[in-house]
């Protein structure tokens, strides 16, 4: 509760700046309209015009909020194709598109995190992997995802894979990297005394891994999972762009830009941000529970 006021202040400031920017960016359109009609637009007209255009350069916060409401709750509850009338999610609703993206994100994240953890275990235990895998992992992240995503889609499509899997693979491609880096660091975090101690017990590699390295790496794992989850969502959205904009948040972004529907684009962006925040929040919750059970949260 103590942080409520500061947070509110920051949010208000952002909204105020946003409204200001709306006037600044959208005023030209109102002036043009007035000039075409042979009139002079007054301040009140400009102000009103900036916040109510159908395709503004920058939509006002309340326009985005209204679109978010219309495209989620209103669409599903009252829409002709909504879940209330048809029993299935409407293909015009952001809930449906967010779910399409989220399912690819979750699958890709599971792939990516699993792969990242396995690679990290290999890197820590095998000198050859230590020397060979990391440079490739780093190189993989220097390739722009926008360049490689269509290639992955095309290649996988030619072997008969389409839809969820290719998107999940692009998503995994982005999310494995932070997990590898974080887990390598975490698995190597035990200090010399702790490793020597296990040596005095004549503990093998297995015991060292399960009893020391793995538990010691937990804080690192959760930090890198949070980064990985966000990257995973970006990957899924990017993976939806070259598929012909069938479904998903990426598709909404693409159709929005085809038809200049800036309000729709911004609503989709916010939907993506809300999904990402939800994922990171969920991981944070698991992290708090796990570390508390391990006695590491104070």
């Amino acid at each position: 509760m103590r942080s409520f006021l500061p947070v509110l202040t920051v949010v208000s400031a952002i909204v105020a700046i946003w409204y200001g920017a709306c006037v600044w960016l959208n005023a030209a359109w109102t002036r043009d309209q007035a000039a075409r009609a042979g009139e002079e637009a007054g301040f009140a007209e400009i102000l009103a015009g900036s916040f109510s255009q159908e395709r503004p350069v920058l939509p006002a916060p309340h326009q985005v909020a209204a679109e978010l409401w219309d495209a989620t709750v209103a669409e599903e509850l009252f829409g002709r194709r909504g879940i209330v009338r048809t029993g299935t999610l409407s293909n015009r609703s952001l809930v449906y598109h967010a779910w399409v993206t989220l399912s690819a994100t979750l699958l890709g994240f599971a792939f990516g995190a699993g792969l990242g953890i396995l690679l990290a275990v290999g890197i820590v235990h095998n000198r050859a992997m230590d020397m060979s895998v990391m440079p490739w992992a780093i190189a993989s992240q220097t390739i722009p995802i926008l360049a490689i995503a269509p290639m992955i889609i095309v290649v996988l499509n030619s072997v008969g894979l389409s839809g969820l899997i290719p998107k999940a693979i692009i998503s995994a491609y982005l999310s494995f990297f932070p997990v590898v880096v974080g887990m390598v660091k975490g698995l190597r975090s035990p200090d010399a005394i702790q490793l020597d101690l296990l040596r005095t017990y004549n503990a093998g590699r297995g015991a060292t891994f399960w009893k020391l390295r793995l538990p010691a790496s937990m804080p690192f794992l959760f930090a890198s999972l949070k980064v990985g989850a966000a990257a995973s969502l970006v990957g899924a959205i990017v993976g939806e762009l070259p598929t012909g904009a069938v479904a998903g948040l990426g598709a909404r972004l693409l159709t929005g830009s085809y038809y200049g529907q800036t309000v729709q684009i911004w609503a989709a962006l916010f939907a993506a941000a809300i999904v990402a925040a939800g994922l990171v929040g969920l991981i944070g919750w698991v992290e708090r529970r796990t570390l508390a059970r391990m006695g590491m949260a104070r």
Binding site: I193, N202, A216, G295
Partner: peptide
């Protein structure tokens, strides 16, 4: 290898994720 000695280091080096009993039990588990 025959576990002939116990070694006490300069720092206690207890595992923060194990209770005191859990820490003492560590060599026994291994």
């Amino acid at each position: 290898r025959a576990r002939a000695y116990g070694y006490v280091f300069q720092a206690a080096g207890l595992y923060p994720w194990r209770t005191i009993a859990g820490n003492v039990q560590l060599p026994l588990e291994i």
